[in-house]
Amino acid sequence: MLTVDNVSKKLSGKTILHDITLEFDHGVYGLLAPNGAGKTTLMKLLTTLLFPDSGSIRLDGEDIVVLGERYRGQVGYLPQDFGYYPGYTPRRFLRYIAALQGMPRRGSDERINAILAMVGLSDAADKRMRTFSGGMIQRVGIAQALVHDPRILILDEPTAGLDPKERVRFRNIIHSLAADRIVILSTHIVSDLETIAGHIVMLRDGTVYANASPADLCASLEGRIYEVPAGTPLAEDQRLLSEVQYGGATRLRIYSERPVVGAAVGAAGTADPAAGPITVAPNLEDAFLVIYGG
């Protein structure tokens, strides 16, 4: 188990994280917060790229700073911008990463072939990366985080640059890995977290605002998410979350503190776009916009 115990961190005199306490066990944990909320700082603390000003981070009861290389050898990390050599091929680059991890050449080649297949790069394994698209480079980044079969996988914006097909591949990879390891990832694509994360950690004002399953976060908004016709005036206790299109007509998706008079119970998209208000099932994007302001 990876434990964050009362951790605080300042950068340039500004408190980024304050008194953070979390526990990570096997499974997928999604970090969800706006830019500047401290997600990347927390990830850097978990990878020992930064160190806490107070508090501690422990793996199975041992401080990760004390564990040092013994801890880092169990971590796979994909930062927002990972460094690579454009003149290298994916195979050569992964051999380089494997060597840095102390993996023997004989065993690492078999592992590299399996990882390249996993991320869909077998056919491009021996092409120079300077010719790759941004999505292909991101797949190399995911591969380098996995090459040494880490116990803890930390991914910062892993789906950036991936097209819908690649994002589905990524979600499938994460599902297959999460059974026996800790996976911590952040992304601005809320739908990715909704489909793969068993736990959502929301940071706000440098503290943990919420730590719950996607289902529990959505359930907290049950009966307060509505769709209404475009142009409907909103009361003071109602908030516009988004606009949705049905058959060329626009409806407003709103959050309301009080029940909307005359609202029918329905599901998004099932009512006549010009019909009156309906209650709809909340989703994780609704929760994000309600908590952080939309």
Rank of each mutant, 00 (worst) to 15 (best):
D19H: 09
S191Q: 14
S8F: 01
P233T: 01
D53F: 05
L234T: 04
R139V: 08
Q144C: 01
L32S: 05
P214Q: 04
P34I: 07
I112S: 09
D216M: 11
K14S: 10
L45M: 04
F93Q: 13
A264E: 15
Q238D: 10
C218L: 05
L234V: 11
L185T: 08
N35T: 03
R95L: 13
H18M: 12
Y255V: 01
Y246I: 15
V280S: 09
D205I: 04
D25T: 14
G135S: 10
G13E: 12
V244W: 11
L2H: 00
L155E: 03
V140H: 12
C218H: 06
G120E: 08
I142Q: 03
D123F: 13
P259A: 02
G269N: 00
A275D: 13
A215F: 14
Q80K: 06
I20K: 05
P34H: 14
G231A: 04
E285V: 00
S54D: 13
G102V: 07
P79C: 00
K9I: 07
P86E: 07
T89Q: 09
S54G: 09
P229N: 05
R251F: 00
L162Q: 03
E157S: 04
G102Y: 09
N283R: 00
F51N: 09
T270A: 13
I184S: 06
L177S: 04
M43I: 06
E62L: 07
A37K: 09
N211M: 13
L2Q: 02
Y85V: 14
F170C: 08
G55D: 00
L289N: 02
D109F: 01
V260Q: 07
E157V: 02
L32D: 03
S213Y: 12
N283W: 01
L240W: 12
R181K: 12
G102A: 09
I112L: 02
R91G: 08
D60R: 12
V208L: 02
V66M: 10
V260A: 08
I182C: 05
A230L: 13
I137A: 05
D163W: 07
R91P: 06
G76I: 02
L59G: 01
A210Y: 06
Y71Q: 01
G102M: 11
L116N: 06
Y209L: 14
P233F: 01
E222F: 12
F24P: 04
M118Q: 15
V280M: 10
Q74N: 11
E157A: 06
A212V: 02
L2V: 03
S12Y: 14
G276Q: 05
R128M: 13
L289I: 10
K10L: 13
V65S: 10
G198N: 05
R169P: 09
I291K: 14
V265I: 15
S54P: 03
I184V: 14
E236C: 07
A281D: 11
R204T: 13
T131N: 14
R91F: 08
A124F: 11
A179S: 14
A33W: 00
T3F: 13
I137E: 01
N35F: 05
L252V: 08
M129P: 05
R130A: 14
Y77R: 03
A125Q: 11
K44I: 06
D123S: 15
D19A: 09
L146N: 00
A197S: 02
I189P: 07
A37M: 00
